[in-house]
């Protein structure tokens, strides 16, 4: 029973990890940028949620749409105001620019909110649980997070494979140069893509902030988790990323059974083992 419980908790945690990873994966797929500041952006939007709920007193579900809209705007602006000017011929440069953004964000948050851990509250839903099997209780909130992760991946897949914007995204991902040569407005595509990425970031941020504590230095852990989920799953495969997230979630939950300090380490170790055994991930995109 204990074992099954760990497994279920781990799988549900994996949903949250997949949510961390979606934006990172999408941004890399489209722009070939690995956004080192990804985790810090997640934490920044957790603080945005905190400001709205704690200081303005608006309940989270009511404030969420506005926060997501804000996130989309922030993403557009981040691309328009910064990354658009970053030459990407040498992958070093965007990497290091994102690194600078990461450090700036962490320290801005430290100045604004202090180093104390914070948490968002969602009232009764946080504590509610259902008995899915005899003696196996699962938190309703965890189920909601997992369902949202699945829904978001499904939605993104539809967007990428069924819409005109998705066609443009894939064309740019194949070859930015060719797409631009044919008259595709690649800048507009990138701005929209960054806006969408930031919406996924904000969703992940709010859910993370309800689930547990965060502080200005929490970003890198989220980045590493997201990265590991993507690599385990295989680059470019969103369902693979979910699988990667689940594997990490289960590993962390199993590690936590030994000792709380083993939780993170266990996740990393499983990642390294899988990287050695399956360097291209569990579900590599064929051909590409």
């Amino acid at each position: 029973m204990e074992l099954l419980n760990t497994l279920v908790q781990g799988v549900l945690l994996g949903g949250l990890f997949a949510l961390y990873a979606l934006g990172l994966s999408l941004l890399f797929g489209v722009m070939r940028i690995v956004n080192i500041a990804h985790g810090d952006l997640i934490v920044a939007f957790a603080y945005a949620g905190l400001m709205v709920t704690e200081f303005l007193g608006i309940p989270l579900p009511a404030a969420a749409p506005a926060i997501l809209l804000l996130a989309a705007g922030a993403g557009w602006l981040l691309q328009r105001g910064l990354f658009e000017f970053v030459p990407r011929r040498d992958p070093l440069i965007p990497l290091l620019v994102a690194f600078g953004v990461s450090i700036i964000l962490q320290n801005l948050m430290l100045m604004g909110f202090g180093a104390d851990p914070q948490k968002l509250s969602l009232g009764a839903l946080e504590q509610a649980s259902v008995e899915i099997l005899p003696e196996l209780h699962v938190g309703v909130f965890s189920l909601v997070v997992f369902a949202l992760a699945v829904a978001l991946i499904g939605g993104l897949q539809l967007m990428i494979y069924r819409t005109a914007f998705g066609r443009a995204l894939r064309a740019v991902s194949d070859s930015e140069e060719n797409a631009a040569m044919l008259g595709l407005d690649t800048r507009a595509v990138f701005r929209k893509a960054f806006a969408i990425v930031m919406v996924t970031v904000a969703i992940a941020a709010l859910l993370m902030a309800v689930r547990g504590n965060f502080d200005p230095a929490s970003g890198p852990t989220r980045l590493l988790t997201a990265f590991e989920a993507i690599v385990i799953g295989g680059l470019g495969s969103m369902w693979g990323t979910l699988a990667g997230g689940i594997i990490l979630g289960v590993a962390q939950m199993a590690g936590a059974q030994i000792d709380a300090s083993w939780q993170v380490l266990a996740g990393h170790l499983v990642f390294l083992v899988l990287l050695v055994l399956r360097p291209r991930g569990l579900f590599p995109k064929h051909g590409g």
Partner: peptide, 16 residues
């Protein structure tokens, strides 16, 4: 891993 992923991968190893 490729350039950018090498960077984060090295970070994971340092963390470990």
């Amino acid at each position: 891993m490729r350039v950018a992923y090498f960077a984060i991968g090295s970070w994971v190893l340092a963390e470990v």
